[in-house]
Design a protein around this nucleic acid. Structure first.
Lengths: 306, 306
DNA sequence: TTGAAAGCGCTAACAG
DNA sequence: CTGTTAGCGCTTTCAA
């Protein structure tokens, strides 16, 4: 008792007077834990990530976990290196928005027993937990909405990223048209290169719209939609009279635009919270969940552009 | 020689077959270095940060440094904890967009000899290196532009953040008006609370504009400008006929908006590159620079809203 | 209940 | 020029 009191005093002396702070690197070396979660994203800009990050931090904080961000810029090599770096620096877990080709690295991390949860995408056939919006359903509902509104030539602008979420969106577009007795002409699909600049996309759109002459266009990602608005503005096209516009994934701009743009929203908050929940389960902080591969319901938000 | 060859073989065996990767935590504990730079920002969303981050990463990468991001959410406690955490985890240097009250922490880091560069703001009287736009000049040029355009009642919408960049912008507004023989009525200034929601700002604007009846309004930060556009849209105000709009700090929305919004741009790329250069100087990778407290020239971009 | 000692994985200094 | 050793600052184990 007495001695314990003296110790406590000593600790207080050291801690307060000397301003002692434990060296986390030493702690980490010894314990193998760091109380840090690595969040790897493709682009650090982008409204999807911006909303995600805030919510994730808020969810992790009460449990004493810190979040550090790293971005791959959709570059596989960088993504691999980032995973290795964070792994070597003993992060306790990963939250990853994967880029194409990352499947192997992710399996490696999992096999090493590191907690990991994917967001926004996943690799079919692998067993890593994931949370994302139901892309197929979202696009399907969007296209169906346009069909219901009697649009005849519905075009699709997508990109060439080799990831499931984009493939699902394209597949949903085609199949929904077919289910409605239309055939999805490849002439109505513009597949842009992912590494195009905004200008290149706008230029591509110009030729595409002129040729295809659609009365409605669906953008399969919000950055494509933003480029689309730039083109529409430049070309002086009237929305929705001359061209209806629908975009997958919302963006700050869309609600402020005139006219407001109809979108398929992702349940960003739910995705973030669910991902954190799954990660906590993996970390052993919460009991394991049965369903760890989840597709959440999208939300079709009707605005003025359709 | 022979032995060296054998060693090399051994290394290759271990490295390739066993998949050996040095434990960076141990390296860090031993050497005190990590080849990691901590980038602390206020909000991880925000176009200013988004552009900054990409450029900084690109500049650091060739030198073998990785960047990790942390956000304070403009919360001092969190900022302090973040600095401590990164410090304890042996980051080699800091790039910080400070929040108010962070001065003491920053001095501590400096006194510990850790390389550190501030961006976007600084604390007068402290000697930490910094790079930011010349806020005074930017705002002054913006207001002068409105005066030259014969606007009579120029309002200012700012916030209550206690940081030099906001103070400089407000001071420039007032002094530029006075230099032109106008007096800056406090009735023409709306100071919003930083932690207001967008809705609260929009509501505040509604009452403010109705009362003050300005013919031009200057938003002192881009998120205020975005809220302003929402209000303008709601209220059906015609820009620039009924109300001219100018915003400090550009945003993706402004060039796409109808009408396009005149802005004072920050030289984001230059800020990022200069900050990295200063940090490299502090790290001893480049020779020391004489001027390590820099204010870069802003750029007034005239568009349709004024 | 408390203090001493071992060792996490690496690099630096040191002896062979 | 190589191979061994000490020790970075902690936590954990073990003996007192």
């Amino acid at each position: 008792m007495r001695i314990s009191a003296r110790l406590a005093d000593k600790i207080r002396e050291v801690a307060r007077q000397e301003g002692y702070q434990p060296n986390q690197v030493a702690v980490s070396l010894r314990t193998g834990k760091s109380k840090i979660i690595g969040l790897i994203v493709d682009t650090i800009s982008g409204s999807f990530f911006a909303s995600l990050a805030g919510i994730i931090e808020k969810e992790m904080e009460p449990h004493g976990y810190r979040v550090i961000y790293c971005s791959t810029g959709n570059d596989l090599n960088k993504g691999e290196e980032l995973i290795r770096m964070l792994y070597q620096h003993h992060v306790d877990g990963f939250l990853i928005i994967p880029t194409s080709g990352m499947a192997a690295n992710i399996q490696t991390v999992r096999q090493a027993g590191k907690p990991l949860v994917l967001m926004d995408s996943y690799f079919p056939g692998t067993d890593a937990p994931y949370v994302l919006v139901d892309n197929y359903r979202g696009m399907s509902e969007g296209v169906q909405h346009l069909i219901d509104k009697r649009y005849q030539k519905i075009a699709l602008v997508c990109n060439d990223v080799d990831l499931i979420q984009m493939k699902d969106r394209c597949r949903a577009y085609t199949e929904t048209l077919e289910q409605n007795g239309r055939n999805a002409s490849p002439r109505l699909i513009l597949k842009t290169a992912f590494h195009s600049t905004r200008e290149e996309i706008v230029t591509g759109l110009e030729g595409f719209i002129r040729k295809a002459k659609p009365d409605a266009v669906v953008f399969a990602a919000n950055y494509l939609g933003v480029a689309g608005l730039e083109y529409i503005k430049k070309a002086g096209i009237k929305v929705p009279e001359e061209l209806a516009v629908l975009c997958f994934d919302d963006h700050e701009i869309f609600a402020l635009h005139h006219p407001e743009i109809t979108v398929v929203q992702q349940p960003v908050e739910e995705i973030a919270k669910t991902a954190v929940h799954l990660l906590f389960a993996e970390l052993g902080l919460k009991k394991p969940v049965a369903d760890y591969q989840l597709q959440l319901a999208p939300r079709l938000v009707l605005r003025q552009s359709t």
